[in-house]
Structure formats: structure tokens, C-alpha cells
Amino acid sequence: MNHRIGWLIAGLVLALAGASQFLLNDYYQRVLSVIAINIILAVSLNLTNGISGDFSLGHAAFMAIGAYTSAVLTLPVRMKAIVLPDLPVWLGQLEVPFVFALVLGALLAALIAALVGTPVLRLRGHYLSVATLGLMVIVQVVALNWQPVTRGARGINGLPPFTTPLWAYGAMLLTVGIIWRVVHSPLGRAMIAVREDELGAACRGVRVFRTRLAAFIIGAAFASIAGGLWAHLITAITPASFSFLLTFNVVAMVVIGGMGSISGSVAGAVLLTLLPELLRRVETSLALGGQPLYGLSQVVIALLMLGVMIFRPGGLFGREELPAVLARFQRRRSAQRQAPHPSPSS
């Protein structure tokens, strides 16, 4: 039954995304797509940070890999001759359909995650976080200096605007579906066991390192897809796009939603996309001493995160998933209904 509801929701979301392309203007379509992309980012980051318990700060790196891969692979050959004249010949003559570009980007990110993860996942805790942050810096530096492919600081613009709500929501549903199934499989159980007690897991036969690496690789692959989608939504990318600020926002989505909960990551992504979008309007309309309040949305996100950490450290969903939360809610409601009415005197 649960299955059928899942498919039903997926179908509905896809239909609405398709309809939005006829009914909404460009701005709203864009906001909708950004929500889906952020869901992909948050849900995939949650796999390491929430499920397997390795707090990575390198998500923007894999997103950049996806964005640049897709940009270079899909740019029309005619444009490449102008924009990227120094590309290796074979790349210069290559023009790949968007889907394949996304898949290839995901594979490349997975490969890099495997290579980088092998040394980095020897670390734990804060050391691991700092090392993954280092990965982000390295990718940025490469993007900045690999002129023939990335155009350095100028970045690549004029990318084909492939990303529509239908693309974004299609990819989002695929991501959430796959990660949901991974988490609810022996591999996911192993990841959670490792998070709960690494030595305890090893002594029950869990291959700890392989399990943590799997979470890192799968997360990286989906981050890359999000990066590709994002590149073809904004149609311009520079190394500065994939900064710590981006990582911070995704981390905030996961933390506010509830680390370890897929539903939480989805909720966090929706909330933290819509909120700044609303605040951005306030930023420009609210002027303090003649100055518009730029940066207000970032401050609000930071404060929100602070508030969640203090008052609800588990995030909105804790570690629970939506079905469990709803079931508990329903139980409580029916219990209330059966309970005798409180006497008016009390």
C-alpha cells in the first residue's frame, strides 16, 4: 500500500511539474526547478552526513564536477569553437545529449569520490569535514586554472537552457527513489549501524570502510547531477558559483530538516529555497537608511539554523521518515478521540 502511495505522489509531482511549464511564468518555473535541485543536493548529502555519519563539507565540489562536465559536453560545437577554442580536439567536436551528459558527470563524480574517499575516509569527525572542505577548494582551484576547459574565472556562459521543471522534478524523483531504496536495503542498514557504532558494526561482519565509501560515492554522483541541472538552469557557471556558501546552504537544509531523515532533507530543501526567495523581495523593498538590506536572507538562514540547533537539535524530522511521523500523529489523534472528554471544571 505504501508503495502505491509513493508511485502516486511521484506521478502527481511529475504531472504538476509538466503543467507548470505551461501555466507559470519563467520566474516561478525557475524557483520550482531550484527547489527540486536543492532537494537532490540535500537528500544526497544526507546519505553521508545523516545516514552513514560522515559529516562531509565537499558537496559543492561534486556539484561543480557535474556542472562543468555537463557544460563542456553539451555546448554546441559551433559555440565551442568560439567560447572554448583550446579544448582538446575530440572534446571540441563532441556534443552530447543532456541526459548522457548528466550520467557521465555522475560517473565522473563517483570516480573522483572513490579516489578521494579512499584516503579521506580514513579520517573521522572534524578531520574528515576539514578534508572534504579541502576537496572543495581543490576543485575550485582546478576550475580556476584549467583554462582550456573551464575558461578560468570568466566561467562558461550561454549554456543551453535545458533544465525545465519536468527535468528537475524527474531527476529529483529518481534521486529520492533510489536513495530511499538504498537506505532501506542491507547497505542502508549497514550505513546506519556504522553511524551508531563503528566497532560494533565491524564485529557483526559489516565492512565498515566499504560501507562509508559507498555512501560517499552515491552522494557524490547525485550531487553531480544536481550540478548539471543547475548549470543548465542558470546557463552560466564560474568557479565562484561552487563556494562554501553553497555547501553551507545544503548543510543547513540537511541539519534543519533532520540529519538521517530523507523526508527531513526534502522539507529542509523546500523551506530553505522558498524562505530566501521571499526574503529577497523584502531585501529590496525594505530599505534601512536608504540602503537595501542585502544579505538579510543569509542571516535569517544562519539564525534559523542556530535556533534549530538550540531548540530542536534533531531537526524538524529527527531521524524519522514521514510515514512514521504521520502514523504517530494518527495514533495520537485517535487516542484523543477515544479518551473521555475532560471535565469542564478542571
Binding site: 542498514r189 546506519i192 549501524a193 551508531e196 557504532d197 566497532l199 560494533g200 558494526a201 564485529c203 531521524r319
Partner: peptide, 11 residues
């Protein structure tokens, strides 16, 4: 088994 019990506590 472990003398000081090692379970996956929240599972």
C-alpha cells in the same frame, strides 16, 4: 558479545 554492550541503540 561485548561486556559493555554495543548495540545499534537507535535501531
Amino acid at each position: 558479545t561485548f561486556q559493555n554492550i554495543r548495540l545499534f541503540r537507535r535501531m
